[in-house]
Design a protein around this nucleic acid. Structure first.
Lengths: 258, 258
DNA sequence: CCCAATTTGTTCGTATGTATC
DNA sequence: AGATACATACGAACAAATTGG
């Protein structure tokens, strides 16, 4: 198969675009789906794929890298090694979606427009459904920002800790879509660098109200009071947004130095 | 270009990275960010990268495939060709995130738990802000399902058209996060395969109410009546969810090509 | 229309690294 | 420790696509 490319009609009507590794990657996906392979199942070995697709090792390897980058496979060397179907992890999905928003200019207001409606929804749906271990974990987390911050660095750390509270909560949801979105937003906010104008002093009243809300929220969740949980979370979001806006927080791409 | 944060890929956090192509891809990301390259800017040529990283061509190419799979670069052959920084497209981001949910078992109820709060939010924020051209486009879209469907195929086509209405609306938002999430959910619902039980007849009343809502929504958007838009969309979501649940629609799990 | 230059795309042979038994 | 089975990496040569003369 020397010329390999009969310049007539693409063999595969679908996804005829892209280089060969891209097409091979698509075909492997289809093959996996057709066979009903699940996470952990092994893909054919490199030599087998070379044989099956009639292509060189390099081409096959590039295809595997594409699937790997998407988080769909993992590869191991050694005997019993090979490539295995892998469930895309939340971390990977977060990172890939983060790439998309890297090129957008999200504001605090943008993120809170969603948080203000999604977080209360989450809270309401979790009321009365959390085991004591999780409730304890949440209370434990609150303890990390029990006292007002005295320095900017401390305040930032508290902020990140309080976002962990929400990520923790998100993970408890049985709605994977809701869980992902809330976790993603918390991650985005964690990646922010907050610049406080020098003359803007910490608003202790807002801070203590925010802290208070989380404690009351845990209580409502334990009591199974769905509507109270919703209400409290809604107020908490108001406070949190006010705090961030007051600090004139700006989204800074956290890899840009200075 | 996103940072090659270790947080992005915690699976490999240990041992400071995976295979060489993966590390090279990360380094190229960092290099691009450090240089402040933006969409459209050209990356070094293959021979230059080989020289710069002291690695074989195949290794470099695998690295480029990784970046390409993430939607971060595009590559062209020929004079003036090479690899170029590329803004991750919404389509690509959708597909990559879709891979994550391929392994989850989202239900109609899961998606609507978010739609019910996000779509009204979108509607309210767009009221009075849409140019006549867009309003006309929306009305034009409604015309595609002006008459009740007579066959299952027709009904499915109408369903997809009505989802296009929402995708169209989403694209008008200045909040890129909200826009993406709503667009993503519409896409997920479009990808559904709807299995209607044979004995379950189309519910004409629900259908006509749904259709009516979209017309009234456009009117409210034109009038700039934000709260009416929110209310109408909320009711529309109720109807739409009822329709889908009644049809016992199921999510067809499939990788989204791209 | 063809030709030449430029740049990525693909192949093959070989050698090395790594994990399992 | 050594053999085995697998991916990983290298390098040279050639093919294909695109642009411009």
């Amino acid at each position: 198969m020397p010329p390999a490319t009969t310049r007539s009609i693409p063999e595969n009507a679908v996804a005829s675009g892209g280089s060969r590794p891209v097409r091979v990657a698509e075909q492997i996906k289809e093959w996996v789906v057709a066979r009903g392979l699940r996470a952990g199942d092994r893909l054919p070995s490199e030599p087998e794929l070379i044989e099956r697709f009639g292509m060189a090792k390099g081409t096959i390897r590039e295809a595997m890298r594409i699937l790997e980058a998407q988080g769909l496979i993992k590869t191991r060397t050694g005997p019993g090694g090979g490539s295995f179907v892998h469930e895309v992890s939340m971390e990977r999905a977060r990172a890939l979606l983060g790439n998309y928003f890297y090129f957008k200019n999200l504001t605090i207001a943008d993120i809170y427009q969603l948080r203000r409606v999604l977080e209360p929804e989450l809270a309401a749906s979790l009321a009365g459904r959390l085991p004591d271990t999780v409730l304890a974990e949440l209370e434990d987390n609150i303890a990390h920002y029990d006292a007002p911050a005295e320095t900017a660095a401390e305040e930032r750390e508290q902020h990140i800790n309080s976002l962990r509270f929400h990520a923790l909560l998100a993970r408890q949801s049985e709605n994977d879509l809701l869980a992902f979105m809330i976790d993603f937003m918390a991650q985005m906010l964690s990646d922010l660098t907050v610049y406080r104008k020098l003359y803007a002093k910490p608003n202790l009243e807002l801070w203590s109200r925010g802290r208070d809300y989380q404690a009351r929220l845990v209580a409502a969740l334990r009591d199974g009071d769905s509507e109270a949980a919703r209400r409290i979370m809604a107020s908490h979001m108001d406070t949190a947004q006010a705090l961030m806006q007051e600090q004139e927080a700006e989204i800074r791409r956290n890899f840009i130095p200075g």
